[in-house]
Nucleic acid binder design. Structure first.
Lengths: 142, 142
DNA sequence: TGCCATCGTAACCAATCCTATTACAACTAT
DNA sequence: ATAGTTGTAATAGGATTGGTTACGATGGCA
């Protein structure tokens, strides 16, 4: 399938940063996070870069560098994560403009946009109810 | 972006079939529907084929063939359409298995699955509140 | 019976996107 | 100055998407 796994990667990284913080390791390198996710460090630097732009993590360069959470894990929701890494709409309209001379073709876009926006908003609201702290708690109690 | 537009194509086709029916043309060929969507007839036959398997449309072969709605447009929801044409999950888990020796890697999958299922269910519930009849009505009143 | 319009589907293509990988300049604690 | 790490560009293989051509299967109708 084509759906990307960036939200998953980012949530994993954030949960791991929070667990490390609780264990007294507030700064983690992209190599260390990549080892937990089991992928390439560059993937993590890109993902953490998105989270950095969104203000969810801090980064330090130079020797002894790394990443750490920029806010308490209780205040980072899955919606924040989704907003940070997933700019795509869930449902796409027509790839090519429909026939404007047909009544359906001429008017369908706003009708579907309404429906898609409504469904997307419900999806976002559900993500907003979960936090990284909650995810981590569930992980540790399994 | 990569999100597919199959739900849009299918909803367009269904709304068009319903409008044609109201105008006394209960059977439409894939060529006629394709003209409204402005794409290839094969794309429509594929889409209408999915809708056929899901029981939303009927098809007739031979001379004078075509497609028509299998149920009243009031009883076809956008969730029915989504179920018929979009088998993919909205959010993907890790592409490669995370590190099982890390506590986060070992436990994150069920935690995220819960969250993703919840959000997807909210999305589906929103789609279930809209029907093809409602979409068509909105199209005609614009 | 034979014709012919249309469905159903396979095969293929170009474009796009995703993850992964290599490479390297920029940066900073020591 | 050195060493370790971030930030990012370039590239590649694989998958998916919409589009296109082609053709056998079907079934009204002359």
């Amino acid at each position: 399938m084509a759906a990307n796994s960036r939200v998953t990667i980012a949530a994993h990284a954030l949960a791991w940063l929070e667990l490390a913080r609780q264990r007294g390791r507030p700064w983690m390198t992209s190599d260390e996070v990549a080892a937990s996710v089991k992928t390439n460090p560059v993937i993590l630097r890109r993902s953490l870069g998105d989270l950095h732009k969104a203000g969810l993590v801090r980064s330090r360069r130079g020797a002894g560098a790394g990443f750490s959470l920029a806010r308490p894990a209780e205040e980072i929701t899955m919606l924040d994560v989704w907003n940070a890494v997933s700019p795509e709409p869930l449902l796409a309209l027509h790839r090519t403009e429909p026939n404007q001379e047909c009544p359906v073709g001429a008017g369908i876009k706003p009708a579907l946009t309404d429906t898609y926006d409504e469904a997307t908003e419900a999806f976002r609201a559900a993500l907003a109810r979960r936090t990284i702290a909650g995810i981590l708690e569930k992980i540790l109690n399994t």
